[in-house]
Design a protein around this nucleic acid. Structure first.
Lengths: 203, 203
DNA sequence: AACCGGTGTTCTGTATAACGAACAACAAGT
DNA sequence: ACTTGTTGTTCGTTATACAGAACACCGGTT
């Protein structure tokens, strides 16, 4: 199940921790007018290490970063900020929820969720008879669809990627590209579908 | 010059990262119903390492913690915060750190939805054994909770008002006041719980 | 020129975090 | 029983983060 791609990233140290941590540390240190020795004294981290961290020549342990963050009066996330790997891009758009019933007549999609909050998320009760297929055209950019499978076996295909979910499992996938849900099990399938529209600016 | 105050907390090297990280990681992982292997696959961290981290037998690298945090849809600070063992209910917390069981041990609440969109909504898989009760303290103002009852019979009490829902029905109620969900039917009850947080552009 | 106290850098050796594989324990299926 | 799968664990090896000391560099005094 759940085939989120593996990041892999075996880059040099901090490429994967986000932006270059070193620069941030150094900026903070200089902002406090601290020398390497002083920061070392206050944080308990060897100054040689701090030097290497600032030049991104090492991949520090969590405890080291925590100690530095504390000494610099900030938090780890604050230090890490600046990266924004853009897991999801924040876009905005309005809804225009078209779909309601299926094409082949085998799928039923009933609105079960709130409509007055329709701009944020939508919530459907989804029933599919055997072999039922629900084709969906792209939703607004950034939309994420969630499918909680109450019973049965459903396969979701999106962007060339297919995921299989069984009873009790939850699938999560991008919905801003064409996607399809197929009841690949035997008998009827029942699921709760949620659409989460991304529409608030996260810097 | 220089010489800021000295925070200086010199504990053990592994425990010095704050609360015990391992337990938090494990709680998050279990809340997502992920195995070590699955989390390993999704995070890119060897499962042996995750195992050791959860038992606080290692002092992880920042990049490792970052990868785990991302896979668990949270931030490093959230993980470090440890959440002073808010076992019981009280799953609202600040950013929706998850929990597992209710106070009477009869209810299970697992995260099924995204946490990185935590400011907008949260989505839980809710199971309650017979007579199970889930007490919740108030969520942020404007929060609306939705309960889709997959099977069983649940009664929601909020603000002195009680609503009864049966299989296939959906309840909707304010969640910014103390509220309680009781399994009043016979046998286990299963529901999907959604929390819709109001605020946009908060702060 | 020598000192100095201060900066940041590059040396050590040691400790250990990381990975992957092999393992054990416990399920369900056949 | 025997698989087959999945859980979490421990093992063997390599890579490297860490601390501390030694180093190089740069002002300012005398």
């Amino acid at each position: 199940m759940s085939s989120r791609r593996i990041p892999k990233t075996n880059v040099k140290s901090s490429e994967e921790t986000g932006a270059d941590l070193g620069k941030t540390i150094q900026r903070l240190r200089k902002a406090y007018n601290l020398s390497l020795g002083e920061l070392s004294e206050q944080s308990g981290v060897a100054k040689s290490i701090i030097s290497q961290i600032e030049r991104n020549e090492t991949n520090p342990t969590l405890s080291t970063v925590v100690r530095l963050s504390r000494a610099l009066d900030t938090t780890v996330d604050e230090v890490l900020r600046g990266e924004q790997q853009s897991l999801f891009i924040d876009h905005q758009q309005k809804s225009g929820i078209p779909m309601l019933e299926s094409q082949d007549g085998l799928c039923r999609l009933a609105i079960a969720g709130p409509l007055n909050l329709v701009d944020v998320f939508q919530w459907y009760d989804f029933h599919a008879k055997e072999k039922g297929v629900l084709e969906s055209s792209p939703h607004p950019p950034g939309t994420i669809e969630h499918l909680y499978i109450v019973s049965g076996e459903l396969e979701v295909t999106t962007g060339g990627e297919a995921k299989l979910g069984k009873t009790g499992e939850a699938l999560r996938y991008r919905a801003d590209v064409p996607h399809r849900i197929v009841n690949v099990g035997q008998g009827e399938a029942h699921a709760i579908m949620m659409l989460a529209l991304k529409q608030f600016g996260a810097q």
